[in-house]
Computed example of a mutant assay.
Amino acid sequence: MAIVGYAHSLVRRHAPEPLGVLAVDTARRAIADAGLEVADVDGFVSASMFPTAGAHAVEDGTSIVSSQWMAAHLGADARYTAGFDGVGALTGSLALGVNAVASGTADYVLLHRALHNPVGSYHANPMTAAVGWQQWTAPQGFFGPLQMIALPYNEYLARYGASREAMAAVLVEARKNGARIPWSYWHGKPLTAEEYLAAQTLVDPICRYDCDIPVDGVATFVLTSAERAADLPNKPVYIAGYASGLPPRRRLAQHWPLDDIMDAGFGLVSRLWERSGVGPAEIDLPQVYDGFSPFVYFWLEVLGLCPVGEAHRFVQAGGIDADRPDGLPALSGGGALGNGRMHGVPQMLECYLQLSGRAGERQRDKATIGVACHSSPHYGGAVVYSAVPF
């Protein structure tokens, strides 16, 4: 199975056109990039989850774009449409697309992710009464994603003696790389360690720069079999394997203890190496998920790219500096912190661009095996990509 084409919109706080218009335009460009016509594409997959804890309306074509909506508004003759319902959006969507092609249900599959930033406060809480599971959390102020990630990050800081100075290295690296990417919201806007350390704390110890910024943006990819890919204009990037994770223990929603994240992550990664036939020593292009900055530590450790409890020292010593000859390019695509809240797209896209030799001035000399990580290790997934057939 292979990726054979892509397109990416500009990433903006608020796009001038509706999300559906942006999505259809980006999809048409991806199909053309793959050397195909809309009539050739017979499968559509996506994850249309709107990632906000606020009370914004969810309307297809406006705040989300489903597979069915995309197929209909492209005017395609779709034999297969499906949407992934879960947090590890791109891993789940990709699995749906791979399975559709492998089973013969579809020949060419369009995978898309469309993100919307509504006007007003993104996570505004209009709640006047707490019901269901939230009665045990919301009255105490435990509501929304910032509190959710602050819990395991505080555990990490206390357990391993990490500091905010170490995390500054993560943000500087992500923004440095995102500043180089033309479609990034942060294009031309790197961040200094001093700016990071001076930023307002939102939920201790999370500050505003530890969070990806909500945006409007769309990315699309075209998938097909390795055999069909050989006849198309772009160098294919092959999908070697993927795996997803779920919490090992039942908890209240948003209750994410550090041990739950790591235990599930180790299980996920074990399955990933088994299914792909590679290991951490063979990965020269790891792209770790960074919707919140602590995820970088968690993924580096569960992938085996540094010892458990050592990620903060690893990054502070320049271990993920993509400009160093010995640096691990874990955020070379800028990630979410360097592009905007594109929900795992930067990780998948960087693997595709580098392994297909299409990264332009950012092209790395050595890029043969990549891994793209999505969401948290215990609620997400990871995909191994290869520059050569597997």
Rank of each mutant, 00 (worst) to 15 (best):
A34W: 08
A34P: 06
A34K: 05
G35K: 07
L36S: 00
E37Y: 06
D40K: 01
G43C: 06
S46F: 06
A47S: 13
S48N: 13
S48P: 14
M49N: 10
M49G: 12
F50N: 06
P51N: 10
P51G: 10
P51W: 09
A53M: 15
A53N: 15
A53D: 15
G54N: 13
H56T: 06
V58H: 00
V58W: 00
E59P: 03
G61P: 11
T62S: 14
I64W: 04
S66N: 02
S67C: 14
M70S: 03
A71I: 01
A72K: 05
A72T: 05
H73W: 13
L74F: 12
L74N: 09
A76C: 05
A76E: 02
D77G: 13
D77Y: 00
A78R: 04
R79V: 05
T81F: 00
T81D: 00
A82G: 05
A82N: 01
G83F: 01
F84M: 04
F84R: 01
D85M: 12
D85P: 00
G86Y: 08
A89F: 11
A89P: 02
T91N: 08
G92F: 11
L94K: 01
L94P: 03
G97C: 06
V98L: 09
A100H: 02
A100S: 03
A102M: 06
S103D: 04
S103W: 01
G104V: 01
T105H: 01
T105E: 03
T105V: 03
D107H: 08
D107S: 09
D107T: 08
V109L: 04
L110M: 07
L111E: 00
R113Y: 01
N117M: 11
P118C: 05
V119E: 15
G120E: 12
G120N: 11
G120F: 10
G120V: 05
S121R: 15
Y122D: 02
A124N: 14
N125R: 14
P126H: 05
M127I: 12
M127Y: 08
T128K: 13
A129Q: 14
A129S: 15
A130P: 02
A130M: 03
V131K: 13
G132F: 13
W133T: 09
Q134G: 13
W136V: 06
A138C: 08
A138M: 09
A138V: 12
P139S: 10
G141S: 10
G141Y: 10
G141H: 07
G141A: 11
F142P: 04
F142R: 11
G144I: 06
P145K: 08
L146C: 11
L146M: 14
Q147S: 14
